[in-house]
Simulated scan of single mutants.
Amino acid sequence: MVTNTSGKKKTAVARATVRDGSGKIRINSQPVELVEPESARLKMLEPFRVVEDDLREDVDIDVQINGGGFAGRADAARTAIARGLVQHNNDAELRDAFMAFDRSLLVNDVRQSEPKKWGGPGARARYQKSYR
């Protein structure tokens, strides 16, 4: 059985394919152990810390990530992986465990950075006004 899911964070989009297998997790065709920085790798593997380890040995996961920086990519990947595990196992108990741990494991964070506008250095900040 093959399950396809996706996750988003900022401008990063991750698409995960979960299938029965032997516990291999690949991010953009590389083993997850090679992902740098380490904080991003730990973030991507968070769904497996919530559930028991034997779940990881039963599935192979391939994740393709486009866009964003390393933090957004890590969050998008963890959402895609968690959704894929829930869908693949069709397990309401697993879904509840993820929701209790962190809602963003299953729900995309829709916040986007606001575009810069004229009259200032950023989206909201304005240039200082001088009277003299």
Rank of each mutant, 00 (worst) to 15 (best):
M1K: 13
M1R: 10
M1E: 10
T3I: 07
T5D: 14
S6A: 15
K10D: 14
K10V: 04
A12G: 06
V13T: 11
A14D: 08
R15W: 07
A16W: 12
T17Q: 14
V18W: 14
D20H: 10
D20T: 11
G21D: 10
G21N: 14
G21L: 13
S22Q: 13
G23W: 06
K24A: 08
I25P: 02
I25D: 00
R26I: 05
N28A: 04
N28W: 01
Q30I: 08
Q30T: 08
Q30C: 09
Q30A: 12
Q30W: 01
P31T: 02
V32S: 15
V32N: 10
E36K: 15
P37K: 05
L42R: 02
K43W: 06
K43F: 10
L45S: 06
L45C: 04
E46R: 01
P47Y: 03
P47D: 01
R49N: 10
R49A: 14
R49Q: 09
V50E: 00
V50A: 01
V50L: 00
D54G: 07
R56T: 05
R56E: 14
E57Y: 11
V59Q: 13
V63T: 05
Q64W: 00
N66V: 14
G67D: 09
G68Y: 05
G69D: 07
F70H: 09
A71L: 12
A71F: 09
A71K: 01
A71D: 10
G72R: 00
G72A: 04
A74G: 04
A76I: 03
A76L: 04
A77I: 09
A77R: 11
A77V: 13
A80T: 08
R83G: 03
G84V: 00
L85P: 13
V86H: 13
H88I: 00
H88S: 01
N89L: 10
N90L: 01
A92N: 10
E93A: 14
E93F: 13
L94C: 03
L94W: 06
R95A: 15
D96N: 10
D96S: 09
D96E: 12
M99S: 08
M99K: 12
S104G: 03
S104L: 07
S104A: 11
S104C: 04
V107G: 00
V107N: 03
V107H: 04
N108A: 05
Q112T: 04
Q112G: 00
S113R: 04
S113I: 13
S113A: 12
S113M: 09
E114K: 06
E114A: 08
E114M: 05
E114S: 07
P115C: 03
K116Y: 13
K117L: 13
K117A: 12
K117C: 05
W118E: 12
W118C: 00
W118Q: 06
G120K: 07
G120V: 02
P121L: 02
P121D: 07
P121C: 02
P121N: 09
G122A: 14
R124A: 15
A125G: 12
R126P: 02
R126S: 10
Q128S: 14
Q128H: 15
S130V: 04
Y131M: 03
